[in-house]
Design a protein around this nucleic acid. Structure first.
Lengths: 220, 220
DNA sequence: ATTATAAGGACACACTTGTTCTATGTCAAA
DNA sequence: TTTGACATAGAACAAGTGTGTCCTTATAAT
């Protein structure tokens, strides 16, 4: 329906100018401003082309109102807007703190949340991801410090090498380790290569999530 | 600074009306429209209050331009806009790798970039921030691992306690440490409390940037 | 070649709209 | 009470601005 190629060069210029102007000023240009910018000396010609653009569905006008023009839809072939849409950030619920001595709290948003870009989540489904703030230095062997924010993905299974949050029955604590399934046990390998691995029986631990990303904000 | 309660009832109404009008029409209202909507029958009074709002940092105006009003920032107590404004993601150039044996590369985008939310930059100006990918385990004493992405902010000065990237003349390497200015020397304190600090003369080191944030992506 | 239609241009007109000036009211500090 | 800063109202003014008309030029169909 909307065929950008059917528009005249002038009409295309008007659209492009409109977009830039609104972006820069926060309000639409006047007919005369459009004329100057697109090398049209007559207001009536600008008006004519504006009406054409309305007809074609690119613009909407409010009659007898100065600057009563607004864009609808997007300009074909103009990626600028598209990128923005693709980048739309997502809100991840910050469900609480992760402390060595306590299991990961239930998946319930308490109001807090953090904004991240989808790219930071990898392939993880946005709805499966939640965030925890690390309290204390208990995760220091996983190279994770006090105050770090851990993005976790609720999963039931893990693959070898995944960084996971695990609840250890015997120790009564949550820990972040790399997961390796061995013949008769699970090896939980600390990220820090100088630390020794922990071995647990699959029945005596629970995987509470897979680590998607760690964010460490610094005071500015 | 921006104290919504300091605004008069009229000024609050104007802001709220503005937001709704722009949302509905795609362009800002006129002084007279604002007056009618907010029960002010004098254009000069509307004008007066608009200037107050500009002073308070809620609006920007373009003089002698019809409908030359635009909102900046958000209306306190009005969540709708807050979300939108806060979400606008920004692109940070990924200028290269940070390796212990080399100085931070010059500030030139090579095309790569990462998307982050402004909130992750704290108060830092977007244009001053760049990103580096950490190569190797040389920053392990700063709790920063191979593959981490470090967001740095170009600064000429640092405050005590800031995490900074420093080039050490004597060692011929870049390191990430906490910065403390002492009477006659600079103390560079590793993040890991078990490590010993480094002391250098101010003339023999260069601060290359202040760490804004560290992001550690995990394989999914 | 003739005609019809679209497109471009110049300009006057009327309405819109921001700005400014003066007068008046309010209220707290001196 | 007086003073002065602040807020309001109304009116007048000067640009700003959209719209209609008339005309010319280009393009395509007949």
């Amino acid at each position: 329906m909307k065929d950008f190629n059917k528009l005249s060069k002038r009409q295309r210029n008007i659209l492009i100018y409109m977009e830039g102007y609104v972006e820069k000023h926060g309000f639409p240009p006047t007919i005369r401003e459009i004329g100057t910018a697109t090398d049209i000396n007559s207001t009536s010609v600008v008006n004519y082309n504006l009406n054409k653009l309305v007809q074609a569905g690119y613009l909407e006008r409010s009659g007898r109102v100065s600057r009563g023009i607004r864009m609808v839809g997007e300009i074909p072939g103009d990626d600028k807007k598209k990128v923005k849409v693709a980048q739309a950030p997502v809100s991840i619920p910050l469900v609480g703190q992760i402390v060595a001595g306590e299991p990961v709290p239930p998946f319930e948003a308490n109001g807090d949340s953090i904004e991240v870009t989808p790219a930071m989540l990898g392939n993880a489904n946005v709805d499966d991801v939640f965030a925890l703030r690390v309290k204390g230095d208990s995760m220091i062997d996983a190279m994770i410090a006090d105050g770090d924010i851990v993005l976790l993905r609720r999963v039931s299974t893990a693959r070898n090498g995944d960084m996971v949050a695990v609840w250890l029955d015997e120790r009564g604590e949550t820990t972040l380790k790399r997961f390796y399934l061995e013949p008769d046990r699970i090896r939980l390998q600390p990220e820090n290569p100088t630390m020794q691995p922990i071995y647990v029986h699959p029945a005596h631990c629970q995987i509470q999530g897979k680590v998607v990303s760690v964010i460490r904000p610094f005071r500015q």
